[in-house]
Amino acid sequence: MTPSSIAVPTGPIAKGLITERRAFFRAAGAATLSATAVALMAGCESMAQGNMTAADVNILNVALGLEHEAINAYQLGAESGLLQQPVLNTAVAFQTHHKEHRDALIATIRKMGGMPVAEKPKAEYARALNAGSLRNQADVLKLAQRLERGAANAYLGVIPSFGDKGLAQVAARLAADETMHWTALTSAMGEMLPQKALTFGA
C-alpha cells in the first residue's frame, strides 16, 4: 500500500483508518475470527461437514473482491479531504462494516478450504474507480451510492446460485447492510427514496 501516493489524511479519523488497515495486515495470518464472522457463520454448520461446493467458494471470493473494493473506495474518499463531518464519520462507519464483511468472508472461505482472493494495491482501485475525477463531497457520495446499490444487487443476484442455503441467507444479510448504506447515502444527498417497492434485486 502506498498511502502517500494519495492526499495525506488530515483528521484523526482518517489517520485511524490507515492505522486500522495496517493492523489488519499484521493480523492477516492469524486466522482469528471476529465476533461478526462467528455470528455470520453461526447458521452455516453444514460448512464444517464438507458438503460445500467449489462454486460456493467462487461466489464468496467474488463477494470478497467486492468488499475489498468497497473498503478501498471509502479509504480513497476519507483520504481525499473532500468529506466533512458528519459525513466523514458515516463513511468511516460504513467502511468498518465492509471490513467486518471482509473478515467474515475470509474466515468462511478458509473454513471451506478455499483461498481468499487478495486485495489489490490501492492505486489500482483508484484507477478503476476513476478516483481522480472526484472534486467534492457530492462526487464521493455519488460514487459510494452507486457502489452500495450495485453491491446490494450483486448479493441478491447470487442468492439463487448458492448450493448452501445458509450461505444464501448470509448473502441476504450482506445485501441488507449494503441497502442500509445506500439508503443513508441517498438521504444524505437529499435524494428521494424509491416510490415503488421491490426496486432492489428484481
Partner: peptide, 13 residues
Amino acid sequence: RCISCHSLDANRI
C-alpha cells in the same frame, strides 16, 4: 445491477 463488479472501460472485479 452490474456496476458493483463491472465497468465499460476498466477491469475491476
